[in-house]
Design a protein around this nucleic acid. Structure first.
Length: 103
DNA sequence: ATGTTGACGATAT
DNA sequence: AATATCGCCAACA
């Protein structure tokens, strides 16, 4: 399983391991999936997720504690929605404290 | 085959 | 704190 396409599933598994109410970063997920420095690959893998997937893609944010999806997009709103629903609250700057919610 | 882009990240300025 | 650059690598405006 070394072909790029099948790596998506490995990445998805790593994302599925993030506990509810917690968040992780693209870089951290990449590491967990055995892809050091593969943060961008993680972003692509999540974008390739089927709409009906059960994978908690919304628990993945960037290393700066911000939503990586372009603000204003439908998916971005959904991500905030789901995170808030799990008790992940952003600080006054609109950023999520990774020291508190990070795994 | 070649250049650009981007759900990233680390480092330098 | 805010930009600027660079490394990374698959997809493709």
């Amino acid at each position: 399983m070394t072909d790029p396409a099948s790596l998506n599933e490995r990445i998805w598994l790593a994302v599925a391991a993030i506990p509810a109410g917690r968040v992780s970063t693209y870089g951290a997920v990449a590491n967990a999936a055995g892809l050091p420095r593969g943060a961008r690959r993680v972003g692509r893998a999540l974008g390739a997720l089927p709409p009906d997937s059960q994978i908690p893609w919304y628990r993945v944010i960037n290393a700066q504690g911000r939503i990586a999806i372009p603000q204003g997009s439908k998916a971005a709103r959904e991500q905030w929605d789901r995170l808030l629903g799990e008790g992940v609250i952003p600080d006054a700057n609109g950023r999520i404290d990774l020291r508190r919610y990070g795994v």
